[in-house]
Write a protein that binds this DNA or RNA. Structure first.
Lengths: 303, 303
DNA sequence: AAATTGTATCTTATAGAAAAAAGACAAGCT
DNA sequence: AGCTTGTCTTTTTTCTATAAGATACAATTT
């Protein structure tokens, strides 16, 4: 049976919406709400029904209003709003990075299913999708082995990343002056400066900025295989940022400055400066990731 | 319920084995057979039981012999020996390349399941695994769209391929003289010459040789992301060779000669010659693929 | 008439089950 | 003692079923 995480997330979002809606005003139409909450009308109606049942809203048909007797009602807990597939990914990464899982370990679908409390179907689906990230491998006999987040993995990742990033930077510099991307780069530059100013409180926001920057550079000459490779990087860095808290603020500040050097080099169209900035940034990103792989015990290479 | 394609293939293989076994001699042990037939003992026993039931073999326990009264028995048809997942892939490629399917088409799991006569689970599994090839894309809402085997796809594919191949060729040339790979290259060179001599009858065998050559070049400095990318190329060329019969013999002969030029350049360690040979070969491979994409109507770009 | 809601249908995500195949262990043979 | 076979257990593959959610169409309101 499908989980109702979509409904629960929409319900919570609807509560936020209602909190700012004048009591007595009729609510937007179902279609409008569907667009705002990014779900189908079917789900909107289910949310409205639940809100009615909890007397958060009153009136029926096209006269739905925020109930005058509106009292705070319980939101659904966050965990229940994230899709099963995302939860499986998260749990798997935890299992791989936190628990014992050494490279070479056989992956047992049934055991993972039991451990995560989901059906085997969900595990299979996850493994099939996750395969492309290169952290697991299919055995010819059937079944999977953990390739693991090893030093070798990080080195291979960065070898490709260097090729792609340099190629994209070159194409970016060759962009015509009137290209929209220059303006986007300009905007992103501002975002960097803003974040740098507020680094002490907002250093967590760097992860997202990082991904946006590199994807913008790549968008100069789109290539689906490069985009797809960036999904790997995004995933790795997502978990890396999430778990490696050591020196986080400091690391991010350095990276922002490197980005700015890179951006300025791009704007100057000086390809030599671009290459230098690109190498510099990648070298330090690589070093950070490699340090993480050896700092934590479970990252040791198995052979 | 799982299909018994493994059993059926093993059964057919066992028949081949028995055809060359002296009547009256006791057969190899179950373990030995399991290794030879590349299945588990469980399956070997099932095969033996079936062979017994059909009186192809006689005696029991460790005294199994080819029955003196052995008569030819029906093999299982080829189709029943290929795994469901492989069949789904084949049918999907047919649907995409032969039938109507235009890029941008929404992919309907249920419809495909009905069309292919399998459960939706099999379709889902296929789509999840197949995603990495870049021919389909997941929609945020859920569901899939066909990206399709378009000209754009081929161009993007070759952009990456050029980067990877050149990089690997460079690393290959830098290999120490005593490396095992030089000998493997030498052997592969011989295989090329042999095939060239028998090209008129064996031109179909080129597909496999092509894949072996390029994977050997890449093995000079292994990188899982490059290997994974080669899976895409192998898959594409597999279907391309299978369906584009036009000028096949001629095309393959040209490609073999290009490979030989490439190989000789590698052996000479002359990086300039290597680059030239590499570019030359890739340019012609690209042209072939691009011509295929425009020759056949369904490859037209949709926008 | 256009937008909105009500209703029915189709599609996807997930569970659960069962057969096939692999693997583990015990017993038997040489 | 080391293979070999018999038996039992575990794991993977594949099917069917069902609730959640999306989409299409009909009815209704303004």
């Amino acid at each position: 049976m499908k989980t109702d995480t979509v409904f629960k997330r929409a319900f919570n979002d609807a509560l936020d919406l209602i909190a700012e809606w004048p009591v007595g005003e009729t609510l937007p139409s179902e279609n409008a709400l569907a667009t705002q909450l990014r779900v189908s009308r079917t789900t909107v109606r289910k949310v409205m029904a639940e809100l009615s049942a909890r007397s958060v809203i009153g009136g029926g048909g096209r006269q739905r209003i925020v109930s005058p007797a509106y009292t705070k009602t319980d939101r659904f807990p966050e965990v229940e709003t994230v899709a099963m597939s995302d939860q499986v990914e998260k749990r798997f990464m935890e299992w791989m990075l936190r628990d014992n899982a050494r490279p070479g370990t056989a992956i047992n679908e049934l055991e993972l299913a039991r451990r995560f409390g989901v059906a085997t179907t969900s595990i299979r689906e996850f493994l099939n999708r996750f395969q492309r990230f290169g952290l697991i491998e299919r055995r010819p006999a059937g079944g999977w082995v953990l390739a693991g987040f090893t030093t070798g993995f990080a080195l291979e990742l960065f070898e490709i990343r260097e090729m792609f990033e340099l190629r994209s930077a070159r194409d970016f510099v060759a962009l015509p002056a009137h290209s929209l991307l220059w303006r986007k780069l300009e905007a992103l530059r501002e975002d960097h400066i803003t974040l740098l100013r507020e680094i002490d409180s907002r250093f967590h926001d760097f992860s997202d900025l990082d991904s946006r920057f590199h994807r913008l550079v790549n968008s100069a000459s789109p290539n689906r295989f490069i985009d797809s490779f960036y999904d790997v990087i995004t995933m790795i860095f997502h978990y890396h940022y999430q778990w490696n808290k050591h020196d986080e603020r400091q690391r991010n500040e350095v990276a922002i400055r490197e980005h700015l050097t890179f951006i300025d080099a791009l704007i100057s169209r000086d390809m030599e400066a671009v290459e230098a900035a690109c190498w510099g940034h990648l070298a330090s990103a690589k070093e950070t990731l490699l340090r993480a792989t050896s700092e934590q015990g479970m990252f040791a290479e198995a052979k």
